[in-house]
Nucleic acid binder design. Structure first.
Length: 302
DNA sequence: CGTCAGGTAAAAA
DNA sequence: TTTTTACCTGAC
């Protein structure tokens, strides 16, 4: 089945958005299990011309399958209208040609997005995606032979932090702890975050809040600073006015708007939100990949 | 082997 | 309030 909205699936999958690791790819087919109406559904998605082609296995209606993928790949967003917006501004006008078809890759599981985003802090895309994939295989639920959902918060909060803690309980066991997934010092953050969402913070409330209220709330979670908070709000809860600002975005904004002057990341975030409004999330996404693909990144390193 | 990148938390200014 | 430092891990 084809969903008639332009997308570059490969680019979107591999763009390092912290909602989740890329789906398993084979011969241009991206495959993943997603929980829809509390039941596991295995999706196959592939590029068909400029559109998305898909099939699925599982106990779900065609309509719900379509709306699930439409959400995850943000297919209701009008890319051409966004490209018009970009082309009207000299600083941004080149971006759409370098990132044509790039879309938000939104969370299939809000909790997975939170832990992924915490894991991505001060980390490389390659490393955090491997950590999250390892966690799924170790403690998630297995479906359709080779696919795993992300473990529940109640599972992660009780995990051993490292080998030391694990061997206290079981002398010769190993590998059944968070640090074995390469998450490093983020392990205690992940455990505490899980505990908070189990005990005191209701995930379903976040999406109903205003952006400011949601930002303030999510910032109370350990391991969540301003950058991670904005990733969680953008990719996990669809707050499109979020402008996740890290060192790369700082360098790009500084290069494009402030003659290369060193601007504090906090100011970059404020600038992005004021300047781009509801397009802030998309502009951030396009800035990063434009810099990657145009060679700008090499030029402004350091 | 050492050096470095990269956000957050906690300490220090 | 803003600035500095320590933190795991893997790439180089």
């Amino acid at each position: 089945m084809i969903i008639k909205a332009p997308i570059d699936l490969q680019l979107t999958q591999m763009s390092g958005q912290t909602s989740q690791p890329p789906w398993a790819e084979s011969d241009g087919v991206f495959r993943e299990v997603v929980i829809v109406n509390e039941k596991p559904v295995l999706f196959d998605v592939r590029q068909s011309g400029e559109y998305l082609d898909f099939s699925f296995t599982g106990d779900v209606s065609k309509k719900d399958a379509v709306s699930t993928l439409t959400h995850i790949y943000d297919l209701d967003f009008d890319l051409n209208k966004f490209y018009k917006y970009l082309s009207n501004q000299p600083e941004l006008s080149e971006m759409s040609e370098f990132c044509n078809g790039l879309r938000l890759f939104l969370a299939k599981d809000e909790f997975e997005c939170i832990i992924s985003s915490i894991c991505s802090a001060n980390n490389s895309i390659k490393r955090w995606t491997k950590s999250i994939s390892d966690m799924k295989m170790k403690w998630g639920e297995n479906h359709f032979e080779n696919y795993w959902t992300f473990p529940d918060k109640s599972v992660i909060q009780d995990l051993f932090e490292d080998e030391d803690e694990e061997s206290l309980v079981c002398g010769k066991c190993s590998g059944n702890n968070l640090k074995s997934c390469g998450v490093g010092y983020r392990a205690p953050y992940m455990k505490k975050a899980s505990e908070i969402f189990t005990l005191e913070m209701d995930l379903s409330e976040i999406g109903k809040m205003s952006y400011d209220e949601a930002f303030e709330t999510i910032m109370k979670v350990p391991g969540v600073g301003p950058k991670v908070a904005d990733c969680i709000l953008l990719y996990g809860f669809n707050f499109r006015e979020a402008f996740p600002s890290d060192v790369w975005i700082k360098r790009i904004v500084s290069h494009l708007y402030f003659e290369g002057k060193d601007i504090p990341v906090s100011k970059v975030r404020e600038f992005g939100m004021e300047e781009f409004g509801n397009n802030a999330g998309y502009v951030q996404l396009y800035m990063f990949h434009y810099a990657r693909m145009s060679g700008l990144m090499e030029k402004i390193k350091r």
